[in-house]
Design a protein around this nucleic acid. Structure first.
Lengths: 139, 139
DNA sequence: GTATCTGCAAAACATTTGCAATTCT
DNA sequence: AGAATTGCAAATGTTTTGCAGATAC
């Protein structure tokens, strides 16, 4: 997805584009590493010295409501956020802690137990060792 | 899975079978509704009046380590636990809050972005409206 | 008798809430 | 001015930690 005007994008999705909201969305959009509230706050408080974590929380909640961001709950402790709203999975490497996005088409998967259910949220979190760490391993 | 002797089962998986551990495992095993620490505690404190939540936390952590239980992180707030360690997905109905287990085999799915990755944990959480609630709806 | 297990009380930590100050129109 | 937004400070709720007492082998 390409967004040339974040203010317009927010407006088109029912979010009034304040300075804070634009900066938070820009950060989320340009950092595809699924940042936490803490990360977003730390990286923006330099640009917006008065910024508070409450605003980051409020803003992300608003983004979720308006469907321009998604929650990534792959960590047990902190919630992560993603501006990529397409259906995709996340893989977390237990060695290097990196989180990889991966394409997955669940329409092709047989899930007979929940046939005819109306599914509108997909959370697919896999964990293990990534290819890079497997290769670096000297077994 | 059928377990006729919980004590033996725990022992075989490296867990010393104390009274508390047996009761907690039994509860988890016979209640396939993915209970929270709170739920487990409330339901067992009648049988074990001295029971503390700390012990429930400690015990579940031990079960996870020994791979006889799994975390179900479908809720944002509380962690749920499952004694069914087979790979399966969870569906949460946003209307009735029921959590359904469903069979899913990701081995047949093309996930080229993480090809050759060593995957050893699967968390598949879907949300929406279950069949029962869809049928009951008077649209 | 030593190691493990249990459980209370306090701490830690992420997130939410109440409310006052600020900003925008 | 009026409504929405921001942000501080306090509260909430889950989970963890430190440690002392109890239990098991």
């Amino acid at each position: 997805m390409l967004i040339n005007n974040v203010g317009e994008y927010l407006k088109n999705h029912g979010v009034k584009p304040s300075f804070q909201r634009i900066k938070i969305f820009e950060y989320l959009f340009h950092h595809n590493n699924h940042p936490t509230v803490e990360t977003i706050f730390k990286n923006l408080v330099g640009t917006i010295p008065t910024l508070s974590k409450t605003t980051v929380y409020n803003t992300l909640k608003l983004f979720i409501e308006k469907s321009i961001a998604k929650v990534v709950n792959i960590e047990d402790i902190e919630t992560r956020y993603d501006a990529d709203t397409s259906v995709h999975g996340h893989f977390k490497c237990k060695k290097c802690d990196e989180i990889y996005d991966f394409y997955v088409d669940l329409n092709k998967v047989n899930m007979k137990d929940i046939e005819n259910f109306d599914i509108n949220e997909y959370h697919i979190y896999l964990k293990g060792i990534c290819n890079k760490c497997l290769t670096n391993q000297i077994n």
